[in-house]
Design a protein around this nucleic acid. Sequence first.
DNA 1: CTGTTCCATATTGTATACAGTCCCTATATC
DNA 2: GATATAGGGACTGTATACAATATGGAACAG
Lengths: 246, 246
Amino acid sequence: MAMESNAATRAERTPRNRDDTIHRALSEAIVDHRLAPGARLPEDALAEAFEVSRTSIRKALQRLALEHLVTLRTNRGAQVAKPSPDEAREVFAARRLAECALVDWVVDALGDDDLTALHELVDRERRAQADGAQHEAIQLSAAFHIRLARVAHNAPFATFIEQLARRSSLVIAVYGSASSVGCECGDHGEILALLAGGERERARQWMTRHLEGIERSLNFDGERRETPDFNALFGRHGPTQTASEE
Amino acid sequence: MAMESNAATRAERTPRNRDDTIHRALSEAIVDHRLAPGARLPEDALAEAFEVSRTSIRKALQRLALEHLVTLRTNRGAQVAKPSPDEAREVFAARRLAECALVDWVVDALGDDDLTALHELVDRERRAQADGAQHEAIQLSAAFHIRLARVAHNAPFATFIEQLARRSSLVIAVYGSASSVGCECGDHGEILALLAGGERERARQWMTRHLEGIERSLNFDGERRETPDFNALFGRHGPTQTASEE
DNA sequence: CTGTTCCATATTGTATACAGTCCCTATATC
DNA sequence: GATATAGGGACTGTATACAATATGGAACAG
């Protein structure tokens, strides 16, 4: 891990910046799949890597837990979150609703500086994709949605979408196939063009299809061993199909 | 402050519950205006009140800061947040968008248990209002929107609206007049009736008008002394009216 | 050979100590 | 009398110590 060099390099003076640096480093590592879902995050090891005490690490982990990027179990420490299929569906449903709802405000507020910044993100993502820079491409894909949400100049909504975008990357890390990451690329450019052209309804359609496309590419049947489905395994009707209660 | 008795009474064993208790106690006190915006929150005093060490208090304050209910300034401690007018407008704008966007899902998922729970909240709010139980009424007003958001069974969206509702209470504490709290009462019952009747479009209209009504009742010109208006004080047109700070 | 119990180890939860920063006030100087 | 400066007090930021808890393995009984 090239983490400790990063942390040591940009050791900002003021305390708040330092905390943010730790939080951001962990967040980015989780979002771009350098830290796998389920990976344990022992406080001691992280404290050594970042050259701080456990106190600062705990602060970062607490925050990441509120953002649903790590799970915190009492006396058992922190680990990178492994969203359940239900959680994954809720995240994508929320994104479809939120990002489409924001289209009107985005179109109204879209300025030249926004456009150039967004175009640059699309380009960089495309290049990273072509170069096989997987981690960077994932990061840039989330960054596009995050930057887009900021156009509307509504901080609460922007941070909401920001959190959802990061959680989506985590969902893809758990359930995504190779195509999950790859197929997004063209969509972002298209959505941007529609927004710039003021075609609100078509922009909403593309956004919806874009997010649905990612969700469809997920595979929830995989070797997910979190809580085995005992009904399907041992139910009285065999493994044909059993309706799970709850 | 009747806080320490509360905290001591429900001293739950497990550590997570304890933290939640502290967080909830502070959050509720801020939301229902028992703690005024701008009030300082020294860690020592809170630690003594809750009979824990500063460590646990810091954890709660960190979280409340992320929820924008308190502000945390380096080396200067925590205080109850005082949202700026811009922030206030953004919060209400976000609520209008989010809560209206959720109407379709709410109508589709609205069950009998939801209806009874929501009706009870409306009734209790009305009673509290009539009895002059201001704090309780405010709490119940937020609780209505929070419970309503949960109907849609989308956790991310529900917690988003939950945070916005609590921040709104804080905004009202800063800029609200007497009518800000009072006039909400009837609206909730009306909105609930429209949702139960499946009248989506009218429900959205009422929700919008409801939130706009609250926003309009706010007074942003008041004695806002955060950064004194030196132009008004020393400007070439003299002091039309001066208010004493703190 | 299987299953259970107990202990050692590792890791987290909490409190506390110490250092650093800010603010306010008192004092001295102009 | 007004302003600048130095000192004291109060509070936060961080690290560390200690206690509590879970985990994994070893020893032992069946």
